[in-house]
Structure formats: structure tokens, C-alpha cells
Design a protein around this nucleic acid. Structure first.
Length: 592
RNA sequence: UGGGGAAUGGUGUAACGGUAGCACGACUGGCUCUGGACCAGUUAGUCUAGGUUCAAAUCCUAGUUCCCCAGCCA
């Protein structure tokens, strides 16, 4: 792989895995106390439990191919499979479906395991690789040959396609279809022995070239591929197809409910055919609709393209829907699990509004993120009647949602920075922040009134504000009961830390980037403003030494986390995970 | 025009013959030292047409629309 690797990060704020899979797990592991209604998969499982099918076991698995990084769509599958196992006191395996050495890489298996663990799930000692089953699969292929149910075919790929027929027309039998069993056995052995070049022959199942289900038209079982495999090295030069591997792997692992996405529905009859012809244990496959999200793309192919073409900065770019990307962005495993719970599961192809994801992380972080003050676009404010050189330590609440989080001291002095957006020389209707002659509250500090505005003579840009403060309002209180509409955040110029802040927005500027007009490309919809870097931000001094990955609410702005890759003690870098709901922005938009 | 699936407010998802509910969004209002959070409320839905039934999102029939399948990918 020549793609950029995401940095392995281990923010210590992360809980150890599985600890809180509790949300989905009734300790006993028997029937769940169910207040919530059942999704269609749970209904099937409960029916199986009732009828004693599978001896009352529930055993699922998450079976990724290690050919890319996991994304939020995989999270849906992971939460489903591990969640079901937890809910019904069963087990869930992790299995790599690694049957195509040309696309797979150890880099991917490592990141996949890391992401599953990060999400909070534990496969115990049940880590499997389809490649561990290669020998058994080979024997099963031989068994089919002996039973006259498989044959070695010398047709080229093109010829096989021609023989396959079309959606409406039946296929034609391969001229090699009736090759004697002994000859098949010999040829297949020699395929394995490496006597033939790539593509020279295949092993095919003998099913039915006239089947309306194209998967049943003598599908290829084995292809010759002189490629070295990330796990089996050069031991094999023939590799089983996914279709000949997946169902039998589930069978070997004694999976009860084999949950996969909708496009495999057409393959189920083939898997059933293999299992029945081989006479081996038969799991139940259940298909569900994969996740789609607005304003992003979700296919591994496209994500790989974005990385390789450097449309983003690697798999863990905070704009990516990958788990490593979301993690670096500041998303918590809890929020992602909550999201997966909330979107449900069905067989209907749907698109979830990304606002649901954003709501999930806000909900989680609102509960737990400490609040701090940070000024993203600083505007100098001088309090003319405040004693020069004086510094006061004012008390600020760490988290109004969590009294146990306590309070901290924030330094205040004569020269401050406030947000440029919090001042308007000509305030529009309903703007109740600072403006000439107006009074606002500086959060946890004092009420100030704007007395004058200093502008750059050449550009006319506002460079400084002058105010007077009311000493009686220390702490932000109004002893006279006076009401102030606006409260704004600030940092003391002398004490503030300089920081870089990265504001992220949707990667694409349209809800469905896959919906491209003829001749267009989804990349045409990349949002040019998906990343805005603010290099002159100021944050309150309590943030000195903030740990990589730690998350905060910058009051009135959003949730931010310390970037795990680029942040340094002497120069903090923050990623905006998600903004706060911005009612004022909505009002302002409406006014236009 | 073969086969396999699926259709419930703007978006998701429940209801399993008996009051169409929940979440997100949108919109009101309340509260607030975050225009955050929170609280209260409003909006808005059973693909169509027939049929069965006291009663249909649910059962039956016929349509319509959408998705998947012609890799030696998974």
C-alpha cells in the first residue's frame, strides 16, 4: 500500500473495550427484558430460540475482508452482530474473509481489529481467518468432484462469460462439464501443485446453466492465482472464491445467524447448495440493508480513491466516514453505538440524515465534555476603566450538566479577546451581542458596555474595541436585577494560549454525491470548504497540557478534541467534532 | 422483457386484524450567565386500485415504483 497510514492513537480518555457493552446486555444472557420493540432479525432469533432451533444458541460473526479501513457502515454491522450476541447471551466471532490476496493487506487486518476494539467489542479468543480453512475448503472441493458436482473447466474468463447467458437467456454448458471424475481430480491436484499459469483453468460447481439465478450457473469455486497471501504466504496458488468460502466458514464456526447485507440475498441459494451437497452444519443467513449517510460516500472503493488521490489526508482524515476518521474527529464509541441503535435495521435501502449522527455525538458530549472558553477569531477588547496590570481569578463551571465536574479559575484582565462574530457595528434585528453603546455579559466575569471602535485607517477593518465595565457585576451577576440579553465568551490576552483550530464540515456539498449527472463524477461534489484552518485562535490557560484526544466544549461554539496526530504541548491543535446548535445562525439566515 | 428483494410523515424506524407511536429535522413558546442544554407544544405518514372483515399499515388479488444479480471481486 502506498497510501498514508493513519496514526495509531490511544487517547487515555477511552474506556477499555466491552466494559460498557452493558447497555445492550442483560447480565444473565437469557431472554432480554424488552421494553423496546424487536427488529426483524431479533424476531427471527427469538422464534428460533422458542422452537429450539440451534439448541438455543446464538452465535454471530463480523466477517470483513481486510482490503480497506472500516467505516461507519461497518459499525452498523459490528453493533448488530456483537449486540445480538450480547443481548441473547451468545457469542460473536471476528473473521477475516481473506480469499483474495491481491487486494488484501496486513495493514488492514490490524486497523480493523483496532477499530472493533475501539468501538467497544471483544471477540475473546474467537479470531478466525478464512485462510485458516483453506485446507478444509480444498478437501470439500475434492468431495464435490468425487460426487460429480464439480469439474475443472478450461474456458477462459471471456468464454465463461459468453457461456453464462444473460439475465433473460439461459447459459450454455461448458464443453468440459462432463470431464471424467478422475481427470477432474488429477487436474485439480495439478492446479494446486502450480502446474498451470494464472487463469488457465478453474474449478466450477456443476449446478444448472439454465437457472434464473445467475449465481447458480456453474459458479467458479477456485481460480489460479500465483500471488502471495498476507497470511499463507506462497503455500497456495489456487484460491477459493468468496462464495465457496463464506458459507462453509460460517458452518465451521457453528454460526447460527449469519447476518449480511442485501446484495447477498441472491447468493443464499448457492450457499445452501454447498452446505447441503457437502452435508455439513447449516447456519441461517439473514440479509439487512447497508447504511447510507447524507453528504458522504460509503463504498470502500471510493474511500480508497479519496485517499489515493489525496482528496483527503489519509484514511483517518477527520472528514472521512471511516472509524479512524471519526475517532480522530472526536467521536466517541458510545456516540457511534448510540447512533447504530437509533437508526434501526431493516431490509429497505435507506439514507440516514447525517444530522442523526451529529445529534448522537452532541448528546454524548453534552453530558461529559468539560466546558472551556476559546476564541476562534480574536478581536481585541480593552476595558478602559479596569486597572492596568490587575488580574482576577474568576470562577467558572466545568460542566453544568454534571455538578461533580466542579469549577475552575479563569484569569481576567484589562485586555481581552472576544469573538469577531460577537460584535457588530450595525447590529441587525435580534442580534443581542456587543455593538456600540450596548452592554453584554462577559461570561463568569463582568458586564461591559462598548464605548468606541478602533479601525485600521487603510482597510476600515475593526481592530480593537473599547469598553467600560461595571465593577458591581463581578462574576457576571447583576445585583440590581438588570437583564442582559447577551452573554459572550472571552479569554484574557495576557494569559491565553495560542492554538490552531480546524473546522470541519461535510466532505461533500450535496446530500447524495453518488447521484451524478451523465459525464459527471462524485468528486465534482467535494466540498471546497470541508476544512477551514484557523491558526490564530486563543484558548483559556487551563487547556495547557491537554491530552491528545481529549474532548471539550468550547462554549457557545461546539465540541472540539485535541488532535492526536499534530497537536504539540507548545502548540495545541484542536479538531471541531461538531458545532453546537446555532439558533442565531438560523435567524440570521432567515433574515437574508 | 428472467430471478431475488423492498415500499409507513421531510429522513429513519415501530405497530404482527382493534387509538398509526418513537427518534432526527422543521416550526412555536417557556426557561437560561452557553442564541447550548432542558421543558412544553405544532406540523406531517400507511405506494395505487379493488376485495375479505364489525374493523386492514397488517389478510387476498391486480398493478406501480425502487434496489440487487450477467467478476476467475467481496
Amino acid at each position: 500500500m502506498d497510501t498514508k497510514k493513519p496514526t495509531q492513537q490511544k487517547p487515555k480518555s477511552e474506556r477499555p473495550a466491552a466494559a460498557d457493552a452493558k447497555s445492550a446486555e442483560p447480565a444473565g444472557g437469557t431472554a432480554p427484558e424488552t421494553s423496546r420493540s424487536l427488529n426483524f432479525i431479533e424476531q427471527i432469533i427469538e422464534e428460533d430460540l422458542r422452537t429450539g432451533r440451534f439448541e438455543g444458541r446464538v452465535h454471530t460473526r463480523f466477517p470483513p475482508e481486510p482490503n480497506g479501513y472500516l467505516h461507519i457502515g461497518h459499525a452498523k454491522s459490528i453493533c448488530l452482530n456483537f449486540g445480538l450476541a450480547a443481548r441473547y447471551g451468545g457469542l460473536c466471532n471476528l473473521r477475516f474473509d481473506d480469499t483474495n490476496p491481491s487486494k488484501e493487506d496486513i495493514e488492514y487486518v490490524e486497523s480493523i481489529m483496532d477499530s472493533v476494539r475501539w468501538l467497544g467489542f471483544d471477540w475473546g479468543d474467537r479470531l478466525y481467518y478464512a485462510s485458516d480453512f483453506f485446507e478444509q475448503l480444498y478437501e470439500w472441493a475434492v468431495q464435490l468432484i468425487r460426487a460429480g458436482k464439480a469439474y475443472v473447466c478450461d474456458l477462459t474468463a471471456d468464454q465463461i462469460r459468453e457461456h453464462r447467458g444473460t439475465l433473460t437467456a439461459p447459459g450454455k454448458n461448458s464443453p468440459y462439464r462432463d470431464r471424467p471424475i478422475d481427470e477432474n481430480l488429477d487436474l485439480f491436484r495439478r492446479m494446486r501443485a502450480g502446474e498451470f499459469p494464472d487463469g488457465a483453468r478453474t474449478l466450477r460447481a456443476k449446478v444448472d446453466m439454465a437457472s434464473p439465478n445467475l449465481n447458480m450457473r456453474d459458479p467458479v469455486l477456485y481460480r489460479i492465482l500465483h500471488a502471495s497471501h498476507h497470511r499463507t504466504g506462497d503455500r497456495w496458488c489456487i484460491y477459493p472464491m468468496y462464495d465457496f468460502t463464506h458459507g462453509q466458514s460460517d458452518s465451521i464456526e457453528r454460526i447460527t445467524h449469519s447476518i449480511c447485507t442485501l446484495e447477498f440475498e441472491n447468493h443464499r441459494p448457492l450457499y445452501d447448495w454447498f452446505l447441503d451437497e457437502l452435508g455439513i452444519y447449516h447456519p441461517q443467513q439473514i440479509e439487512f440493508a447497508r447504511l447510507n449517510l447524507t453528504y458522504t460516500v460509503m463504498s470502500k472503493r471510493r474511500l480508497l480513491e479519496l485517499v489515493e488521490e489525496e482528496c483527503v489526508n489519509g484514511w483517518d482524515d477527520p472528514r472521512m466516514p471511516t472509524l479512524v476518521g471519526l475517532r480522530r474527529r472526536g467521536y466517541t464509541p458510545e456516540a457511534i453505538r448510540g447512533f447504530c441503535e437509533r437508526i434501526g435495521v431493516a431490509k429497505f435501502n435507506s439514507v440516514i440524515d447525517v444530522a442523526v449522527l451529529e445529534n448522537s455525538i452532541r448528546e454524548d458530549l453534552n453530558r461529559r465534555a468539560p466546558r472551556v472558553m476559546a476564541v476562534l477569531r480574536p478581536l481585541k477588547l480593552v476595558i478602559d476603566n479596569y486597572p492596568e496590570g490587575q488580574v482576577e481569578e474568576l470562577e467558572a463551571v466545568n460542566n453544568p450538566e454534571d455538578p461533580a465536574a466542579g469549577t475552575r479559575k479563569v484569569p481576567f484582565s484589562r485586555v481581552l479577546y472576544i469573538e469577531q462574530d460577537d460584535f457588530r457595528e450595525a447590529p441587525p434585528k435580534e442580534f443581542f451581542r456587543l455593538a456600540p453603546g450596548r452592554e453584554v455579559r462577559l461570561r463568569y466575569a463582568y458586564l461591559v458596555t462598548c464605548t468606541s471602535v478602533v479601525k485600521d485607517e487603510r482597510t476600515g477593518q475593526i481592530v480593537e474595541l473599547h469598553c467600560t465595565y461595571d465593577p458591581a457585576t463581578r462574576g457576571g451577576n447583576t445585583p440590581d436585577g438588570r437583564k442582559v440579553k447577551g452573554t459572550i465568551h472571552w479569554v484574557a490576552a495576557q494569559h491565553a494560549l495560542k492554538a490552531e483550530v480546524r473546522l470541519y464540515d461535510h466532505l461533500f456539498s450535496v446530500p447524495d454525491p453518488s447521484d451524478v449527472p451523465a459525464g459527471g463524477d462524485y468528486r465534482d461534489f467535494l466540498n471546497p470548504k470541508s476544512l477551514e484552518v484557523l491558526s490564530d485562535a486563543r484558548v483559556e490557560p487551563s487547556l495547557a497540557g491537554a491530552a491528545a484526544g481529549s474532548r471539550y466544549q468550547f462554549e457557545r461554539q461546539g465540541y472540539f478534541c485535541v488532535d492526536a496526530v499534530d497537536s504539540r504541548p507548545e502548540r495545541l491543535v484542536f479538531n471541531r467534532t461538531v458545532s453546537l446548535r446555532d439558533t442565531w445562525a438560523k435567524i440570521e439566515k432567515k433574515q437574508k
